[in-house]
Design a protein around this nucleic acid. Structure first.
Length: 859
RNA sequence: GCGGGCGUGAUGGAAUGGUAGACAUACCAGACUUAAAAUCUGUUGGGGCGUAGCCCCGUGUGGGUUCGAGUCCCACCGCCCGCACCA
């Protein structure tokens, strides 16, 4: 008897696929096309078991669609620009380019043994000048169409290192290297005008039927459409050019509860005031300390400063309100100024209590008119409430009705205007870093900002030029310190000018790579025919962490590329279907350092598991097991796919990552689970071997039963794969394997069953499937064999078992012909022993028969 | 802080509002073996009773809708993802 030998057979079939160029994506007029794409990886250096899961899922879809008669595009590339390469250069020396391409080579070599059905001829990295040169061409076209512009924006500034920090480099408001308190500083930066498309990006979500509802909800909330009132509070005395303060509010109905007017520290009025008032300047400087991210701003203690200015209430000129500068008001949203209604907003209430400002109720619950004290009264806008003294004449009305009435009232009276606002801000793409796509413009003293000429593209990053080395040991952008790269003649007037030294956000790179895959070597960003043929991505697969930014930016880019003629109208929503997979987790094995009490983390290889407890192999000490933790190098709980593939083969790794958990949820990697997957594949192989040795002429029993089980398996696995129920499909494959194993059917039927099993397993374990196919004398490659058809007539059962519930609890069951008359079922139910017993406790109240499903007897 | 999601045996999980625990892991028992491993077979949510069977409890917690709730609604607890310069 032969042995399952994955190392040999996997290498063998991978070469067979390579030789036949099986996975080359080719346009084929006789077949429907299918484009499956997994979010491409960042070349961190090693593949991660999470990659294995992500790419295996995509591969299952790709292989299944091929078998089901599609011509498939399944490409792979590298999201290769970004900070880790520069960080590595800072820490260990070397060059980001070398680091990146080395990592790519290592990861490609690690990925190939997985046997993914990828068209490797289309591979590219975003740091290839051929790719980012086309990205620069896109930028120039966007610029021409007004989709890009420059404005001031705040960044995290490290005053010690004199450098811009990314949010992740700011830890508790301090720079990660210097430890200095970070400040917000304004720089002139490039922006994509994504906000012009807010309405469209929001409304088009409705058409994305095959996207998870949660992702659409998150995007909708992120875009954040609101309807409100914009109006001006007149200042009692002018302050410079300011006669009033323009505010935007989504709750204009609470205007009678206004207690102060608040402005952002970045509001033009605040900036004007701080020039002449050192106390205000000090306060604004204080507010500008700390990180720029919204989370930090929201969590910070609420601070305010009374400017001494006063405004008139629009409904009552005798009513004056103070003007405060507050740290929780964002200049980016609305007008950068608000009025506060503490009775109906917790944040405003906390602020007013802190600074002893008045709290005025504007409405009460219908049954409770207790005034607000420490907790703001914030019912849903759909609730009907009782109004205290509403200027639009309302008594009892919902919040929404009151808002609408207020906007109408203000518009009729002429002091305000109903306005639709979006929370979505323009996308800042400038990064003060080296390892990114250079922004292809030149700054000229005479001509201003001048776009590069397209024939000069790509504007390539300098690698190293003699006495101008790319040095990462000092902070700041090396491009700034590289005169021969930076100093160029102006493309317009030819006078000396300077290149833009900022590079692009790496989100730009990943916002159009899916389009580039359709024609990766084209001399323009896309090729019209190829894009028209292969777009859209039929199935996109990636992590939920990209639910908002990457996917929203890509949706915007597809529109911008359409406007500039790089994508057809049909591709403005680039991803027809989206699937978000969960992470692969692993237990953490932890002990405590006796000296300093700090946790010590142990690698899985160092730990022996017994009876659910873990012990160190070295000295037998028990370790604490923290289950299902996100894999992290610092916690030593990373599983190396390379080691798994060496030990068990790729098919085992693929089978395991698909088997245990639903794909959208996290899966915990366990050694026992991997072992079990390996054992099962061995079992399937032995089964194939056994069937191969059967006497073809010996009579069998239960041929019909095995055929029925086979068609049931085809049906179940097909629907499982189609609906991303990979774990359920695998459970059915286990069950079908068990059925074949126990079957005494004839050789012909068993052979048909094992070959069908191989076909059904082929998307998950392609190497083993090929081997079984060859072993049983199948024609050609199983990878090229059509997906098995299900014979629907084999699925029909003649009888059905109906559970009988008494008051909703299962008490008995009856087996009846499938199409039995309802009245007849009722009669049988009433004769049932359990029902008879139950009837002794009381009379029958109701009898519910759901045909083919269930019976409920209500006593 | 804000937005989104998840929570089921010892473990991973299954279950169009319709028999909770499919399929697997682990454990236990048996077969094979000098023995072990491997392999195969079987049992296993918890509790109880008059133990061929029947009853009670059980899907994070507390309420609600329904003939019927793991599934729908409300509140709470815990964990995860995102918050615009991580990718």
């Amino acid at each position: 008897m032969s042995r399952y030998d994955p190392q040999t057979l996997e290498a063998k079939w991978q070469s067979a696929w390579d030789e036949a160029q099986t996975f080359l994506a080719k346009a084929d007029p006789d077949k429907p096309k299918y484009y499956v794409l997994e979010m491409f990886p960042y070349p961190s250096g090693r593949i991660h078991i999470g990659h294995v899961r992500n790419y295996t899922m995509g591969d299952v879809i790709a292989r299944y669609k091929r078998a089901a008669g599609h011509t498939v595009l399944h490409p792979m590339g590298w999201d290769a620009f970004g900070m880790p390469a520069e960080n590595a250069a800072m820490k260990e020396g070397g060059h980001p380019k070398d680091w990146t391409y080395n990592n790519i080579a290592v990861m490609r070599a690690q990925m190939k043994p997985l046997g993914l059905s990828i068209d490797w001829t289309r591979e590219f990295a975003t740091c290839d000048p051929e790719y980012y040169g086309q990205q620069q061409a896109l930028f120039l076209d966007f610029l021409e169409k007004g989709l890009v512009y420059r404005k001031n924006a705040v960044v995290n500034w490290d005053p010690v290192d004199m450098t811009v920090l990314a949010n992740e480099q700011v830890i508790d408001g301090k720079g990660w290297r210097s430890g200095a308190e970070v400040e917000r500083r304004e720089l002139t930066q490039w922006f994509f005008k994504i906000s012009d498309h807010s309405e469209e990006l929001l409304s088009a979500l409705d058409g994305l039927d095959n996207w998870p509802a949660k992702v659409k909800t998150m995007q909708a909330n992120w875009i954040g459409m609101s309807r409100g009132l914009q109006f001006s509070f007149a200042l009692t005395e002018r302050a410079g050019d300011f006669e009033g303060i323009e505010v935007y509010t989504t709750r204009p109905d609470t205007l009678m509860g206004a207690s102060f007017v608040g402005i952002s520290a970045d509001h033009p009025l605040a900036k004007k005031l701080e020039k002449d008032n050192s106390a205000i300047a000090a306060f604004c400087a204080e507010v500008r300390k700390g990180a720029t991210n919204e989370e930090a701003i929201e969590k910070a203690e609420k601070l305010g400063f009374d400017t001494g200015l006063r405004v008139k209430h629009p409904l009552n000129p005798d009513w004056e309100l103070p003007v405060w500068i507050a740290n929780f008001i964002l200049m980016d949203y609305g007008t950068g100024a608000i009025f506060a209604c503490p009775a109906h907003d917790q944040r405003d209430l906390d602020f007013c209590r802190k600074y002893d400002l008045p709290v005025i109720d504007t409405f009460y619950a219908l049954d409770d008119t207790t005034p607000v004290t420490t907790e703001a009264f914030v019912p849903p806008k759909t609730d009907t409430v009782k109004w205290v003294n509403h200027f639009a004449g309302l008594d009892e009305a919902t919040g929404q009705d009151a808002i609408d009435a207020t906007i109408d009232f203000a518009e009729a009276a002429g002091w305000g205007e109903g306005k639709t606002q979006y929370r979505l801000r323009d996308w800042g793409l400038s990064r003060q870093r080296y390892w990114g796509c250079p922004i292809p413009v030149v700054h000229c003293d005479a001509c201003g900002v001048v776009p590069e000429k397209k024939e000069n593209l790509p504007i390539a990053l300098p690698y190293d030029s003699g006495n101008e080395p790319i040095d990462f040991s000092i902070p700041g952008n090396p491009l700034d310190r590289h005169p021969s790269w930076r100093d160029v003649p102006c493309p317009a007037c030819g006078k000396p000018a300077k290149r833009e030294t900022d590079t692009m956000d790496t989100f730009v790179d990943s916002s159009w790579y899916f389009a580039r895959f359709t024609a990766p070597r084209a001399e323009t960003p896309t090729d019209a025919d190829a894009a028209a043929y292969w777009m859209n991505v039929d199935q996109y697969i990636g992590g939920i962490e990209h639910a908002i930014l990457h996917l929203l930016y890509s949706r915007f880019f597809a529109r911008a590329m359409n406007i500039t003629g790089h994508l057809p109208d049909s591709a403005t929503e680039p991803f027809d279907a989206l699937f978000t997979q969960g992470m692969v987790t692993h237990a953490i094995y932890q002990t405590t350092d006796a000296q300093n009490g700090r946790p010590v983390y142990h690698y899985p290889e160092e730990v022996e598991l017994r009876d659910g407890k873990g012990f160190l192999k070295a000295d037998g000490r028990e370790v604490q097991i923290i289950p299902s933790a996100k894999m992290s190098k610092s916690k030593n709980n990373v599983v190396d796919p390379v080691a798994i593939i060496e030990q068990y083969g790729a098919d085992t790794a693929r089978w395991f990552v698909l088997s245990d958990s639903p794909p959208e949820r996290d899966v915990e990697w366990t050694a026992a689970g991997a072992e079990a997957a390996y054992k099962h594949l061995n079992r399937v192989w032995s089964l194939c071997d056994r069937i191969g040795q059967m006497d073809p002429d010996a009579p069998g029993q239960g041929d019909e039963d095995l055929k029925r089980a086979m068609h049931k398996a085809i049906f179940d696995v097909t629907s499982g794969v189609e609906s991303f129920g990979f774990n359920a499909a695998i459970a059915k494959l286990y069950a079908f394997t068990n059925t074949i194993q126990k079957s005494k059917a004839s050789h012909a039927v068993q052979r048909e069953a094992i070959m069908t099993l191989a076909q059904l397993m082929a998307p998950m374990t392609p190497h083993l499937a090929e081997d079984i196919w060859a072993h049983q004398g199948g024609t050609g490659l199983i990878t090229n064999a059509p997906w098995p058809d299900v014979d629907e007539t084999m699925l029909v059962e003649d009888t059905v078992t109906l559970p009988i519930q008494v008051n909703g609890k299962r008490r008995s069951e009856i087996t009846v012909p499938k199409d039995m008359d309802k009245a007849e079922v009722e009669k049988l139910v009433m004769e049932d022993d359990a029902v008879q017993r139950a009837l002794q406790n009381g009379p029958l109240k109701k009898l519910i028969v759901v045909p083919g499903r269930i019976v409920n007897v209500v006593i």
